[in-house]
């Protein structure tokens, strides 16, 4: 797949103003999340653009994953979590009463810290999302869709001869790419990734980073990572999160990755990315 390197590093991504022309797919307004009445993150105002990778970085426990989970209503499944404020997905507030969280999750996919393939074959893992979402596909269409997803996830060449093998027989890095293929298969608009390479070796990590760059034009990708170098490598836009004195996570800086990593505006960002704190 041809990679548009002009979008990776060049002056057109140094200024956040240039993103304003692209579609805002997700937008949060004064978003906050509390667990059992203890505020975890507060006053989150962010915009996520189509065709770009946004990284959310920050020290452990600052609420990055909490923020991510509130973008596709996965927090509904966490006991005691309460979400306030607004999250607009294509202009619609996903927390309004008439919205079905199941539908939201089929449009906003998610990949988790540890690879979590289902205990089925490689093929069935990718087909799972298509089946549960009631896609009406013939056998050939299903096969084509699975192949396409695996190709996008840069896994096809490695598994094309063993689609019926059990997913657990794949390596960790392959399993994580399978999880990405699984998410891509149902053609979501947004892909959320919660520290997707934290349990992988450097080579698998590099593969996943490359794959994210290669698919980014078609999606809105939001990547949570506490590996700031990963954010530097992969993302176009970076949001830096930091807990305040009450351990409530807040966004302290938000801007083009090239700017954040060369001339951060906030002293705390500077200290964090240069390894002085956190």
């Amino acid at each position: 797949m041809e990679i548009d390197y002009k979008k990776v590093v060049s002056k057109d991504v140094t200024d956040l103003g240039l993103f304003k022309d692209s579609d805002v797919v997700i937008k949060t307004e004064d978003l906050y999340v509390s667990y059992r009445d203890k505020l975890a993150i507060d006053r989150i105002n962010l915009e996520f653009y189509k065709g770009y990778i946004t990284a959310i970085i920050g020290p452990s426990g600052c609420g990055k994953s909490t923020l991510l989970r509130s973008l596709n209503r996965m927090n509904d499944l966490i006991q005691g979590a309460k979400v306030g404020g607004k999250v607009y997905f294509n202009g619609v507030d996903i927390y309004s009463k008439e919205i079905d969280p199941v539908f939201i999750r089929s449009r906003i996919g998610m990949v988790f810290q540890r690879p979590n393939p289902f205990p089925f074959s490689v093929f069935e893992n990718v087909a799972f999302g298509l089946r549960v979402n009631g896609f009406k596909l013939t056998k050939e269409e299903l096969r084509a869709r699975v192949k396409d997803s695996l190709e996008k996830a840069a896994l096809w060449d490695e598994v094309k001869d063993r689609l019926d093998a059990h997913a657990y027989s794949l390596s960790g890095g392959q399993q994580q790419r399978l999880c990405i293929a699984r998410a891509i298969a149902i053609e979501p608009e947004v892909i959320l990734l919660d520290e997707p390479t934290v349990s992988l070796d450097p080579l698998s990590t590099a593969k996943i980073e490359e794959l994210l760059r290669s698919i980014k034009n078609d999606y809105t990708i939001i990547l949570v990572t506490h590996n700031m170098l990963q954010a530097a490598r992969v993302s176009d836009i970076t949001a830096v999160m930091m807990p305040d004195e009450n351990m409530v996570g807040r966004i302290i800086e938000y801007g083009a990755t090239s700017e954040i990593f060369t001339k951060p505006k906030d002293k705390r960002t500077e200290d964090y990315i240069s390894g002085r704190i956190g």
Partner: peptide, 19 residues
């Protein structure tokens, strides 16, 4: 992890349980 994985693909609770 498995439950969340299935929920994140837009599965309903019944589908998560049965599949």
């Amino acid at each position: 992890d498995l439950r969340f994985g299935a929920y994140a693909l837009g599965a309903t609770t019944l589908q998560v349980v049965s599949k």
